[in-house]
Design a binder for these strands. Structure first.
Lengths: 174, 174
DNA sequence: CGGCATGTTTGCATTATGCAATACAAATCA
DNA sequence: TGATTTGTATTGCATAATGCAAACATGCCG
């Protein structure tokens, strides 16, 4: 392993307070992942997380071709291809020949696919809402603002070293 | 300890404020997962996320047998078995025959395995710290408290099977 | 038309996973 | 103590997710 020096290090290594924040974030992120997995499992036992992500992309962005679909999921076309085949076989997707361009094929959700997405999404939001509901109300508002600030701060393109698409063990990126 | 609702309603009401919180949480969670994937990829291209999780479990909980290891990762023994084989082949794990009980085998990290875990963990904490550092300081403290309340509200482990946190806190797992 | 770019498929290899069956070892029972 | 049951590890078999490279198909240009 190349001990490549990490480019971004704009902050002091061991600041007690910063450590506290980082730990809080990491802990919360673990909970969030667990919630997602649970919600999905409760709706569709046979659906994997990558498959669910594909349905979600099609649901929120509308029909698109295999390559673009793969791009949204950070996988190469061949992977997207096989996933589409499986989900088509499961009745959740359908392929539509694009009349204007015969080398592209539009992939779209079927009614069944949309049903699954909606059910899982509702379930996840409900689970998160349940957890939030168990928080002291004062913390709820603080959470919204703090998370917004956090998301905003993290939105910036990852400093340097963005070039590599970074090999994908990257599952569960709902 | 906050007044965590003893009987959380299984169905959450969809009032505007709750929706806001849920949306903020979902948005932040996407960012967190992306950060995790990036950090791992930047340290070890050949390591998958499940493999990394296995190393982390062994790092934070110490050596254990295949079955328990699988339990911590939510996979069945055969899956854990094969993962151990691969990671052993990669020089990150080693098997130790248990003298007191010949039907169990202890799996432990090698120095190389520990190095990988530490590097990836440091990298991830650094990335999060970078994001947090870009937040207004006032929001930082609010974030800690709010996330703690959130994690606590959602911490409903089936059993209390967590031993004392062996090392430097933060058993963030993946 | 001929080459280049864009998209889709296939072939091949590896990892992750679950289920079922097997092989041992330890514990329990009759 | 010998037979049965239980706990672990391991192997066989099957499917999904992935990447890379190569084979095709189609659209565009000069």
């Amino acid at each position: 392993m190349p001990e490549r020096a990490p480019a971004p290090r704009p902050d002091a290594p061991h600041d007690g307070e910063a450590d506290e924040v980082v730990t809080a974030v990491l802990t919360a992120s673990r909970l969030l992942v667990a919630v997602s997995a649970r919600s999905l499992a409760s709706v569709e036992e046979t659906l994997t997380l990558p498959q669910f992500r594909m349905l979600v992309v099609l649901s929120t962005r509308g029909p698109m071709n295999i390559s673009r679909l793969g791009t949204h999921l950070d996988v190469i076309p061949s992977t997207a291809m096989r996933m589409v085949e499986r989900l088509t076989g499961a009745g959740m997707l359908e392929r539509e020949l694009n009349p204007g361009n015969r080398r592209e094929i539009l992939i779209r959700l079927t009614a069944e696919g949309r049903r699954v997405v909606d059910a899982a999404t509702d379930r996840r939001r409900a689970e998160i809402a349940r957890i939030v509901g168990a928080m002291p109300p004062a913390h709820r508002t603080a959470l919204v603002e703090a998370l917004r600030a956090f998301s905003e701060a993290g939105d910036e393109p990852p400093v340097a070293e963005q070039a590599a698409p970074a090999r994908t063990g990257t599952d569960m990126r709902w």
